[in-house]
Amino acid sequence: MQYSKIKLAVGLFVITLLVTIFTFLYLVLENKGTFNKRYNYHFTTDSAAFFSVGMPLKFSGFSIGAIDNISLNNDGSVFMTFSVDENNRRWITEGTVLMTVKPLIGSTQIEIYSAIGNKVLEEDAELLMIQSNDINDMITKLEPAVDKILKIINNIESITSNLAKENSPLNETFKNIRDFSAKLSNSDSLLSSLTGDKKSTKSMIDALNTTNSLMDELYTISKHISKSTSSLDAEIMIPASSLIKELDAIMKDVKQKLDTLDSTVRVVGSYDIDLLEFKEQISVSLQKTNQIMDKVDAFMQDDSKPEVSLP
């Protein structure tokens, strides 16, 4: 009899528990909208890349629906079905478009751009899908600029290769100038025809020769100067320069050390102030402790007397 009562109690308990659990689950799922009716809509894209079943559709940053099915059409395009619940159906109106956004960073998203105020679309209607690809847009914008840069580089390359050729117009011009100047210095007749006087031509040639010898002398002098300056470099300038460099390094080091010392002095100064403050704080704490001690003393004494009792 007793055993059957226990069995009954356990059975009732188990049933109650199960009822409670299922009720709780039902309420949770109901609250989540699992049992709400969902409305299907469709859109078509060129490729199913970046899309997946369960991918959310967002409106103003809120997820209002999800892709339920992806299938391939006979013409190679991709047919997708998504659904929204009763509450969010109002955002799917006539004129609503979908847009896939492929940001530079992050995963692809489907945004819903709704024409608010328009009539709500019937179930199983097809929506227009626009693709926005940030990376591709950027590359498309950059493409003409890159082409232009490449053209410029090619042009520069052809110019330099032309210039480098033996029979290039520039080189030809240089050669002509050289031949002309050589002929000018060697040929009396050309000079004579230019000046119109043989005497003048001779004096010009003499002058040119004198200039040549002068130039030679100048060259020799410059060589000497170069030699003396180079010896000056080796004997005085280089050691002096290295000394100055070393001095500079030392001074820099000294400056750095002085800077460090300065900061240290400042820190020590601040420590001094801190210590004074710390000391004051300790003094205050001691006074407070003394006050507590007075109170403790007052509690601990058996009787309160206003006079010191002499031993």
Binding site: M293, D294, D297, A298, M300, Q301, S304, S309
Partner: peptide, 9 residues
Amino acid sequence: YKSVNAFDS
């Protein structure tokens, strides 16, 4: 009182 108590202590 405080003085006396402190001295007793």
